[in-house]
Design a protein around this nucleic acid. Structure first.
Lengths: 221, 221
DNA sequence: GATATATTCAAACGATTGTTTTAAACTAAC
DNA sequence: GTTAGTTTAAAACAATCGTTTGAATATATC
């Protein structure tokens, strides 16, 4: 309720299938899978209820296709942001730059805010209420991302114990996912929280500083 | 499905109201609010469907009462664990001890595993799909806990900038909540994940070390 | 233009949801 | 034993869910 994006995609030049995907993505990440009905989706997309089953077979099918069109780009974007930092500054790799780049891509605070930020919320939901094949998210995104971070971290901190990379990545991702949660909480609670104001960029800078120090606790220097 | 705890509370010596609360708590944290039906709860508790509305007025009423009986004890437990560390070792307060104590109470890995661990899951869900009054969780648990950690951190690290305490607490809590998520993922996916084995205590020790270093990045020494 | 295929639509399907009803069973007080 | 109040029980409630149907419409192919 109070989303007032009903029919926001209606009359768009995109195809019915495209409108359904866009609309469903927004509703899924705002209200969750169970909280979003096919009737809601169809109404917001401005098309018939049956069209969901016509194009995607089922509600689950639509949910999976919402993910499928983002999983690979998402993974590639994260890996690319990691590799970009690693390629520049040939001689001396900067840990803070690596973390900041990863965090920005993760939270989506820089460009493409709406799309990336929505995906972050969707992913945060998927952690708890999974409606995807179990291995899908782990294999398609998590494992490749962790691998890329693994390589980058080992390159940046050569004397880092390899067994510590996974917990470190978990710590960084945990902070970032939590940042998305807090952001979502603030958006939903009408700014009447008794907590101080919340600037994503400030928090990201904190996470970078905090995590860099945490990582260096495992290095000799 | 495959929980096979149906009627696990049936025939218990507790009252119907108590059985409903216990059963609902377990189902809510495993399947979420929307994923748990009143019929599921009543069947598992071994009583009639109407009893939920008879004792709690509504499904939401039951959910709120599930929370209510734990919120204050939860808050007090966390604050107590913080204060306990701060009271002992009068002269020299140890940052690692503070973090470890807080983490243990948060994740519930030490004693009372089932109860505390279940609440952690429930809380992780509440972050995303809130079915409580907006201020309730923030006012009853988050704010008091943060305040206690604030005081303890300032006492342990006297030269810490006060404005950095909140982001630091967020970082620690973010890692802990994420740990609960990962644990839940492992439990639900039949141990077929391609990720290495996962020992909560090891991860907690990592979070302690990682966070202590992150915090000291803000102190002079 | 006729045919075949693809898409849209309103309507209904069966199942499940939270909730209410109505009566029976139980418990205690007098 | 009767009464009054509390608790349990089965059934039905209206609403909503995902899905399917079958006819109507649009689009393309020849």
């Amino acid at each position: 309720m109070a989303l007032d994006d009903s029919k926001s995609n209606a009359g768009s030049d995109k195809s019915v299938k495209g409108r359904l995907l866009d609309t469903a993505e927004g509703l899924f990440c705002e209200r969750g899978f169970k909280g979003t009905s096919i009737r809601d989706i169809a109404a917001s997309a401005g098309c018939n209820i049956a069209s969901v089953n016509y194009y995607f077979g089922s509600k689950e099918g639509l949910y999976e296709e919402v993910w499928h069109r983002h999983l690979i780009p998402m993974r590639d974007s994260r890996i690319a942001s990691i590799n970009k930092v690693m390629s520049r500054a040939e001689g001396r790799h900067n840990l803070e730059d690596l973390l900041r780049s990863f965090a920005d891509t993760f939270v989506g605070s820089m460009v493409d805010t709406s799309k990336t930020s929505r995906l972050s919320k969707l992913m945060a939901r998927e952690y708890i209420d999974s409606h995807l094949p179990t291995d899908m998210f782990v294999n398609e995104v998590m494992t490749p991302t962790i691998s890329a971070m693994h390589r980058a971290l080992m390159k940046t901190c050569p004397d880092l114990d390899e067994s510590k990379v996974l917990p470190i990545v978990f710590s960084v991702i945990g902070q970032l996912v939590h940042l998305v949660h807090i952001k979502t909480m603030f958006e939903h609670s009408g700014d009447d929280l008794s907590l101080p104001i919340f600037d994503s960029n400030e928090i990201i800078e904190h996470i970078v500083k905090f995590s860099a120090a945490g990582i260096r606790a495992y290095t000799g220097k």
